[in-house]
Simulated scan of single mutants.
Amino acid sequence: MTESQNKTHFGFQEVDEQAKQGLVGNVFRAVADNYDVMNDAMSMGVHRAWKWFAVAQSGVSAGDSVLDLAAGSGDLSLKFANKVGPDGMVIVTDINAAMLAQGRKRLTDAGIAGNVDYCLVNAEKLPFEDNQFDCISISFGLRNVTHKDQALAEMRRCLKPGGRAIILEFSQPTNSTFRKFYDAYSFNVIPKLGELISDDRDSYQYLVESIRQHPPQEELKQMMLDAGFDRVRYHNLTGGIVALHMGYKY
């Protein structure tokens, strides 16, 4: 099978691998303007607590260098920039120009300058040197990457020895009863919210489907180990709706 014939998933659809990046790009161009409003609506604001927890667990401190992949509207980047201070650096990245513009706007409006830079980046092919960053984060973005193993390997390559990767992503609820409630909410409510708030049901239908295609907790942990990370662990948040995975480079 040639590369052009390789298949992957786009939500519940099967598509050519080469087509997925463009399809995902279309989704995030469509949702960029209402991204934060929809995050609050879908999670009832709980996404803010998930992100604060991720930053607290990252161990980032003054003077550190941080690479924030799939930074979206920049809420983690803003928190990291405040933590690293004027002697540190945060590289704010996204593969989608519309989302990166949202992140730049958030940080600029917050008065963040001097210790941040912005870059359009494909997580599978990072344009950075080996051993460059103290911490690399990706928040609610890994599930959209076609070759997750490549992205994980690139994250490890760009970390300094002793550096840590943090991956905040939707996962699988651990309680079967809660999972049924979550599935009902996801498939029946979230696309409807997308339709009402953003006039875009299809993008949020993709969101729900992409979550179900993402590797669950133990599988993602093993993928990080296979990529060469050490001391890999994860924390389930809100019953496993979201998981924070962490791994170190030694």
Rank of each mutant, 00 (worst) to 15 (best):
M1E: 14
S4K: 07
N6E: 15
T8G: 03
F10L: 15
F10Y: 11
G11W: 09
F12K: 06
Q13V: 00
Q13G: 07
E17F: 08
Q18D: 09
A19E: 08
K20G: 05
K20Q: 14
L23M: 13
L23Q: 04
G25T: 09
N26R: 14
R29E: 06
A32Q: 06
D36Y: 08
M38S: 04
S43Q: 10
K51H: 00
V55G: 02
Q57K: 09
S58G: 12
G59S: 01
V60N: 03
S61P: 01
A62P: 02
D64K: 13
D64C: 14
D64Q: 10
L69N: 12
A70W: 06
A81E: 00
M89R: 15
V90R: 03
A98T: 09
G103I: 12
R104Q: 09
R106P: 01
T108F: 07
D109L: 09
A110I: 13
G111Y: 14
A113R: 10
G114S: 09
V116P: 00
D117T: 02
A123C: 10
E129L: 07
C135D: 05
S139F: 03
R143G: 12
V145Y: 01
A151T: 08
E154K: 04
M155G: 06
P161L: 09
G162K: 10
G163W: 09
I166F: 03
I167W: 10
L168T: 11
L168I: 06
E169R: 06
T174G: 00
N175Y: 01
N175C: 06
S176K: 04
F178W: 13
K180M: 08
F181I: 11
D183C: 06
F187R: 12
N188P: 00
N188V: 00
K192Y: 10
I197Y: 15
I197P: 06
I197T: 03
S198K: 05
D200H: 15
D200N: 10
D200C: 07
D202S: 08
D202C: 01
Q205S: 03
S210G: 15
Q217Y: 11
L220T: 12
D226I: 15
D230E: 13
V232H: 11
V242N: 02
H245V: 15
Y248H: 05
K249M: 02
Y250C: 13
